[in-house]
């Protein structure tokens, strides 16, 4: 319903003023809102009040569960605070200054980038490829569609135990087969310092690519078959059909999937923590979320832990804004 066909909007209801708020500062907007509010009849005003009251609980929930924790984290990051003892001191930006010169922070930042980049890259490649295959008709397709979702449904702790078992250098089945087939001479210490990043990336790809598969597959199923038929008539090869039909059709959802997976992988804690700290060589996969946890829960420096969390939050906000600017069209479709 547009503004012209909606009598209440024409009368200058808050909704109507929202649509006109392209210019002017917050003060102007508030004035306009107050003017609108008092201009309407008494009956309409009480209807409006009722409307606001109904959204109040949701608003409080959002404020309480989202904005308050973020705000509190920011406040905490300005304190020197013990994690469980009630001692705290306001130190301004000292925690941030400290982190700037902390080699562990930069190492964690780098490890986090490496982990996020490779896991996202291969999740997308594998997820899209698997979705394309599972979008084709073949016998047993439904069964395979169910099976490929298993990794995503398994609890992380189970997946980690499973992979640690498979990759164990003394009795793991992966090394057994590698040696048996003569691919390697000595078992590889997959969970040792040299290979643990590779192992956790591999495990994460395995665990999370079904999410990409599922979302892309859902989109593929809505692409009109007529488009492909027309392209076939025109003699387009399978590759060209993918480039000119499939890819443009899925780019909106791909935009969202990459965004979500980037946020989730950059802040991924459980998989990395369980693979690393219990196994010993955890230092080599000590990503930012793990480091933030350690600062808070094992160094007992809640302020520094919060500063790390805020930095992660800001990095993600900045990256998301840049991402939206770079892919405006996809963002609109997505």
């Amino acid at each position: 319903m547009d503004n012209l066909s909606n009598p209440r909007r024409r009368q200058g209801s808050p909704a109507a003023s929202d649509s006109q708020m392209g210019v002017g500062g917050t003060g102007q907007r508030l004035m306009r809102f107050a003017g609108d509010f008092f201009r309407v009849s008494k009956g309409e005003r009480s209807e409006q009040v009722a409307g606001y009251l109904t959204i109040m609980p949701a608003l409080f929930l959002i404020l309480g569960l989202t904005l308050y924790p973020v705000g509190y984290s920011i406040w905490l990051s300005l304190l020197e605070k013990h994690s469980f003892f009630p001692q705290e001191r306001f130190i301004g930006l000292s925690n941030y200054i400290y982190l700037w010169s902390d080699p562990e922070f930069w190492s964690s930042f780098w490890l986090g980038l490496v982990y996020s980049f490779w896991t996202i890259f291969f999740q997308i490649i594998l997820g899209v490829a698997a979705a394309l295959i599972l979008n084709e008709a073949f016998i047993g397709r439904n069964l395979i569609r169910g099976i490929v979702l298993f990794p995503y449904m398994i609890p992380t702790i189970v997946a980690v135990i499973l992979w640690k078992w498979l990759l164990n250098d003394m009795y793991g089945v992966v090394n057994y087969w590698l040696v048996a087939f003569g691919i390697v001479q000595e078992p590889i210490s997959w969970l040792g310092a040299d290979h643990i990043m590779f192992s956790v990336v591999l495990m994460s790809i395995w665990q999370f690519f079904p999410f990409v598969l599922l979302t892309i597959l859902a989109r593929l199923q809505t692409i009109p078959e007529k488009l492909y038929e027309a392209a076939k008539v025109d003699g387009a090869s399978a590759f060209k059909r993918f480039i000119h039909i499939t890819l443009p059709q899925i780019r909106g959802i791909l935009f969202v999937v990459i965004l979500l997976r980037s946020i989730w992988m950059f802040t991924k804690f459980d998989t990395v923590w369980l693979m690393g700290e219990g196994a010993g060589a955890g230092r080599f996969i000590r990503t930012l979320p793990v480091y933030a946890y350690m600062r808070t829960m094992t160094y007992y420096q809640a302020g520094l832990g919060a500063a790390l969390a805020v930095i992660m939050f800001l990095l993600l906000v900045i990256c998301t804004i840049v991402y939206f600017r770079m892919f405006r069209e996809e963002a609109d479709i997505g």
Partner: peptide
């Protein structure tokens, strides 16, 4: 030591000895 000992847990060492 086994090359991957940094990745071994406490119970892994028992298993290594027992087996």
């Amino acid at each position: 030591l086994p090359p991957g000992w940094l990745g071994h847990g406490y119970l892994d060492t028992f298993t290594n000895l027992a087996t």
